[in-house]
Amino acid sequence: MTNPGPMICPFCGPRDAGEFRYGGDPKAARPAFGSSDAEWAGYLYVRENARGVAKEYWVHSQGCGQWLIAERDTVTHVIQRISEATA
């Protein structure tokens, strides 16, 4: 077995993980203006932090600047899938 290795940017290829910045939880969909105070507070502050595979925003901030969605195992840090973030 080998180590999970560096992060692989879909635009730049394998790059050191230090070039990437965590960008938050893409599942935290922006509530509509008419949502409750609690819904908005949840969007701002409440995160699952689940054990296992998590969908996460990452941005290749020290590289191409592109926003990416990674499926990362929060236990092993293995990134199972990474692709460009879309609107």
Binding site: G23, V59, W67, E84, A85, A87
Partner: peptide, 12 residues
Amino acid sequence: EEWRQTRFGRDA
């Protein structure tokens, strides 16, 4: 850039 790429679209 964050909002452009994740909400409005890179091409727009």
